[in-house]
Design a protein around this nucleic acid. Structure first.
Lengths: 235, 235
DNA sequence: CGGAAGATTGAGAGTTCTCAATGCCTGTGG
DNA sequence: CCACAGGCATTGAGAACTCTCAATCTTCCG
C-alpha cells in the first residue's frame, strides 16, 4: 500500500524506484493515537520524527492565561516535526484530533532519506509549502474578517485534502469542534457558530457532525479571497 | 569584513575554515536598493537568491482590495527567498524598507553551499527558525490584543537585532512608519498611534523618528507575554 | 517657507467578545 | 428501550475593542 507521503512527494517530481522503495520502507514503526491525545509535547526532545499516515492532528500552543492557539493542521502525508532533530526541543505541542496513525521515523533513517538528492529536494519542497501556508494564515488573520477567515480556512483544507485524495466531491470530514475552529482562527466558539450560520444561510457550505458540505465552491472561494497558488499543488 | 550571515550561522555551530571562506566569498554580487524599492515582486522567477547584508526589508502581500499584509521582517543576515529556486515563482513580494544592501547569490553557488553538510545544516536551521517566527506571529494575531501585539513585535525585533549585534543597549532603529506597523500587525494606523501612546504612558517604550527606546524591558516582555525561546538564539 | 507625509486626537459606528440561558445530540446505564 | 448526563451548538443582550472618518498638528525636506 502506498502511504500518503509517497502520494504527496510524487506530485513534486519524479522519484526513482529506489527512492520510492526507501519511502515505502520507512513506515515500519507505526503507532496509533486516540482522538485528543498528544503526539508530542512542548519541551520534549524526541530522537525520531513523526509522519502522519491517517487521521488529523494539529500544532498548538497554550498561553499562560490558558488560551490555546492552533498554528497548523497536519493531514496524512505531513511531517509533524522535521525540525526537532535540528532545533533541539519542541517549542509547541502536536495533538491528534481524531484517531490517528503515525509513523515514527528514527533520526538515522531521516539522515539516510536526506542523503538522496531527489528525496531531500522533495522534503525541502514540502517544508517550503508549509511555510507558505503559515504566511497565508497570517494574511488571513491580519486582513480578513471572521466570515472571510472561516471561509478561507475551509477552502485551504478542502484543497489540501483533495491533493492527497481524501476529499469527496464537495464533501469532506472535518474532525473538529467549533471550539477547535475558534482556536485555529483566533475567534470565540460563539462567534464561530454565528459565522457558520451565515455561511449556511448564504448557501456556501454547511458543517454538521464533523462533515463539511460545500454548496457553492466558487462563491465560497470568492468570499474568502482564496487563491490556491500558495499551496503549490501539482495540478 | 565578516558579513552578518556569517555571524548568524556561526552562532549555530562550528563551521570549518573552508566553510567560512566559502560564505565570505559568496557576497560578490552586491546591489543597493533605495528605501521603499521592491527587491523582488510576486510572480517573478529569479535565478538567484537574495541575502540581506544591510538595512531592512519585508515580505508582503497586497490583497485585491488594496490592503497590505506584511508577513515577515528581514534583517541583515536573513535570506529573502531560498525557496524560489525550488517552488518556481514568488507568491509574495519583498520590499526594502530603508536603504538596503543585498547580495545576489546564483543558483549554482547555492548548490555549492548546500553540498557542504555544515552549511546545509546551518541554512536549514535558519529556515526552521523563520518558521518558528511565523508560528509566533500567528499566536500573536490569534490570542493577543493590540497592545500586547505591538509589544510582542517590538520584543521580537529587539531580540533578533541583538542577536546580529545591531541593537544598542535599550535602543534600536526601526525604519518603519506607523502604517508599516499596522500592515504587519493587522491593525489600523490610527490604532497603532493610540497603542504607542499607551506604551509611552505606561513607561515601557517610546518610538520617535524611527527610533525605539526601551524604557523597561521586563515590563514590556511581561505585557507581551514574550518568551524568546522560539527564536532559538545562541545565548 | 511651503508642501507633503506622517502622527495625533475625537466622535461615532461596527465587529467580536462575554456572559448566560437554552437546545440538541450521543452514548450510557437502568 | 427509555431516561438522563455531558458535551457541543445556538441564541440573545450588553460590553469591549478596534475601525472609520475627519480635523489638526508635527516633522521633514526641498
Amino acid at each position: 500500500m502506498t502511504h500518503p507521503l509517497v502520494r504527496k512527494l510524487q506530485s513534486v517530481g519524479d522519484l526513482a524506484k529506489a527512492d520510492l522503495d526507501l519511502l515505502e520502507a520507512l513506515v515500519s514503526d507505526i503507532r496509533d493515537f486516540g482522538a485528543r491525545r498528544d503526539i508530542i509535547r512542548e519541551g520534549e526532545k524526541p530522537d525520531h520524527v513523526h509522519l502522519m499516515l491517517e487521521g488529523w492532528s494539529c500544532r498548538y500552543q497554550v498561553l499562560p492565561d490558558g488560551s490555546k492557539q492552533i498554528t497548523a493542521f497536519l493531514l496524512p502525508g505531513d511531517f509533524c516535526d522535521v525540525h526537532v532533530t535540528m532545533l533541539g526541543e519542541m517549542d509547541h505541542s502536536i495533538g491528534a484530533l481524531n484517531a490517528a496513525r503515525v509513523a515514527f521515523i528514527s533520526r538515522d533513517v531521516m539522515r539516510e532519506l536526506i542523503e538522496r538528492p531527489a528525496i531531500a529536494r522533495a522534503l525541502w519542497w514540502a517544508s517550503l509549502v508549509d511555510e507558505a501556508v503559515l504566511r497565508a494564515w497570517i494574511v488571513n488573520f491580519g486582513r480578513r474578517d471572521s466570515f472571510e477567515r472561516v471561509a478561507h480556512l475551509i477552502c485551504e483544507l478542502y484543497a489540501r485534502l483533495q491533493n492527497v485524495g481524501l476529499a469527496a466531491e464537495n464533501e469532506f470530514d472535518l474532525p473538529l469542534t467549533q471550539e477547535d475552529l475558534s482556536d485555529a482562527l483566533g475567534l470565540t466558539p460563539v462567534h464561530i457558530s454565528r459565522v457558520l450560520k451565515r455561511l449556511r444561510q448564504e448557501e456556501m457550505m454547511t458543517f454538521k457532525r464533523q462533515q463539511i458540505s460545500i454548496l457553492d465552491i466558487r462563491k465560497l472561494q470568492a468570499a474568502a479571497g482564496f487563491d490556491p497558488s500558495y499551496l503549490h499543488l501539482a495540478d
